[in-house]
Design a protein around this nucleic acid. Structure first.
Ligand SMILES: [Zn+2]
Length: 572
DNA sequence: GCCGTTTTCGGCCCGACTGTTTTCAGTCG
């Protein structure tokens, strides 16, 4: 059992205890224990083996015993008995936004609600509103949250989609006779949320059936929803869909192009082909009518783009947003790449709610070849996240000065992720704000303002000359929470006017600003910062998702400030 | 259930909002 699995069990015990009506502080002790285990840099089993797990702050006698049982047997009787006493569907009910353990318990004990279906029915029948502690509004809010949950059902975020896709691709690749396999569809296009994993394979016709069998029998396949001679569609445990198409090798290039899409991109390509007297279909590119083939059988994607007089369009850019016109005009932007990034900005440390120390984060930055790093812990109003008091801001500055001597090749800057307060102001007095090298300003509270009020609030923040970067502009959490209502275009215009940089937060739950605003950002010439918002060392590598989104937005690398030296973007 | 030490019980991250209640519990970030 790795630390993540152990932590998950402890966290679930915490929830189950609360649902059982246990002392909430006892429940919290398990959640705290889960966090302690998550933050370990070594396997918890090692500490258990050495009898040292009790030395961890937050782990006492009881948790130490349970960790011992868990890491030696892989099971925990206490956990299993709790699970037996609480309907398993309640765990899903507790994940509904607005419902915590106490409310779920009330619904369970008062109305017999034991699943999401029960809850929806109870709401529709008006029974929730009649329950003490609830009312018409709570009932309506619960129904809305359930609908939101339903909308998110069957989708996943990019890292999971990529992992599942490459796992399934590997299964197919291992099947006899298979010569090539690629992930296609929306996953290859790096959509920020995905529903279907599409895989394309090339094999001689005699090998089709075997490859389809391998796919249909892959681990995690729940049901096979359709099956033909060259195609299989399945649903996966967890609700995602997946599909495999197999073509003979000479059709692989065009097949991949069509399987990748998007529809809009393909429409632009086929229109361009037609304008040149060509015809493009999944079989390849050919002379319209009876001519010979322009692209020989077996033509790759690259060859097809070239035959259409286009530079290669990377898969993540194929959204039908004018990328074909740009490529045709020879104006396709020079997109940002990992090696372009010189600056690592907006990461958290143990000074606030990060899991690694400042030194550890800086060492990771240096190891990854960054030439400058700007730490941005939380500001004082985010007290739940350990936001920095003015004294701690200054103490951190001293540590930075000391650490700078240790990291000669890395310029260390002190930023802050300042809350944007409800009135649009920043979170410290002017004299303190002036001491930071730069400021990322983000909304972390009062999400449910009116659209007008939120727009005014954020515009005031981006117009503040102390604001360097607007952090995660919409506040969305993909598949968990919609962004707050706000006139994004007005905000982006105001930011561009004020010279405030827009963050492209690379956390795969955020990927915010949305790539769909790329056209406006380009038109405005607005500068963008790709920031990992990392809370630990591993989080730094979320930058890869941010890079994909910046490319998807067709942003020229020159607009991405992390590619520049600080002097090019710091306010003076 | 953990922690600290005022050594063995009492408090546990904190402030604001929402919807319920009629003075506050629950949820969220
Ligand atoms: Zn933030």
């Amino acid at each position: 059992m790795d630390n993540g699995e152990v932590a998950r069990v402890l966290r679930e015990i915490g929830l189950l205890l609360e649902l059982s009506g246990e002392n909430p502080f006892k429940a919290r002790a398990y959640v705290t224990g889960a966090r302690v285990i998550e933050d370990l840099s070594r396997p918890v089993a090692e500490l258990v083996g050495a009898g040292r797990v009790k030395e961890l702050k937050g782990i006492g006698d009881a948790l130490a015993r349970k960790l011992h049982e868990l890491s030696t047997t892989g099971r925990l009787a206490f956990h299993e008995s709790l699970r037996a006493a609480v309907p398993s569907g309640l765990l899903e009910v507790a994940a509904v936004r607005g419902l915590g353990a106490s409310k779920v318990r009330a619904l369970w004990r008062g109305l017999g609600v034991a699943s999401l279906e029960d809850l929806a029915r109870a709401c529709r029948e008006g029974r929730v509103a009649a329950l003490t502690g609830f009312g018409e509004k709570s009932q309506a809010n619960i129904l809305a949250a359930l609908q939101e949950l339903e909308r998110f059902q069957g989708f996943t975020i990019l890292p999971t989609a990529l992992a599942e896709a490459s796992r399934l691709a590997a299964v197919v690749r291992a099947a006899p006779g298979v010569q090539a396999v690629e992930v296609a569809g929306e996953v290859r296009r790096a959509r920020e949320r995905a529903r279907t994993i599409e895989v394309l394979a090339a094999a001689p016709a005699a090998s089709f059936a075997g490859a389809l069998d391998a796919f249909a029998n892959a681990r995690g396949v729940q049901t096979v929803t359709s099956r033909t001679g060259d195609h299989a569609a399945v649903t996966l445990v967890g609700g995602l869909s997946a599909a495999l198409r197999i073509v003979t090798p000479e059709r692989f290039g065009a097949g991949l192009l069509f399987a990748t899409g998007s529809r809009g991109h393909l429409a632009a390509l086929t229109a361009r082909a037609a304008a040149r007297g060509l015809s493009l279909d999944p079989g390849g590119l050919s002379q319209a009518g009876d001519g010979g083939d322009d692209v020989p059988p077996g033509g790759s994607e690259e060859e097809i783009y070239a035959a259409l007089g286009l530079s290669f369009v990377p898969p993540e850019c194929r959204e039908g947003n004018g990328e074909v016109d740009l490529a045709a005009a020879g104006a396709f932007p020079r997109l940002v790449e990992r090696a372009d990034l010189r600056g690592l900005l907006h990461f958290h440390t143990t000074w606030s709610d990060g899991r690694n120390t400042l030194r550890e984060m800086l060492a990771a930055a240096a190891e990854r070849g960054f030439s400058y790093a700007g730490v941005c812990d939380h500001s004082r109003t985010s007290s739940y996240a350990g936001g920095l008091s003015i004294d701690r801001v200054r103490a951190q500055r001293q540590e930075i000065a000391a650490l700078q001597a240790e990291f000669s090749g890395l310029r260390i800057m002190q930023g802050i992720e300042s809350d944007i307060l409800p009135d649009g102001s920043l979170d410290y007095p002017e004299a303190v704000l002036a001491e930071f090298d730069f400021i990322v300003a983000s909304v972390h509270s009062q999400f449910s303002m009116s659209r007008e009020a939120m727009t005014a609030r954020v515009i005031r923040a981006v117009e503040n000359p102390r604001t360097t970067i607007l952090g995660h502009p919409t506040g969305r959490l993909l598949l968990q929470r919609e962004g707050y209502a706000m006139d994004m275009e007005a905000v982006l215009r105001a930011a561009a006017r004020a010279g405030t940089i827009i963050e492209l937060n690379a956390n795969p739950r955020r990927l915010d600003v949305d790539w769909r605003h790329g056209g406006l950002l380009r038109d405005l010439g607005a500068r963008v910062a790709i920031n990992p918002d990392a809370h630990d060392v591993a989080g730094i590598d979320d930058l890869s998702y941010g890079l994909l989104m910046a490319r998807k937005a067709l942003l020229p690398a020159a607009l991405v400030i992390n590619t520049l030296e600080p002097e090019a973007w710091l306010r003076r």
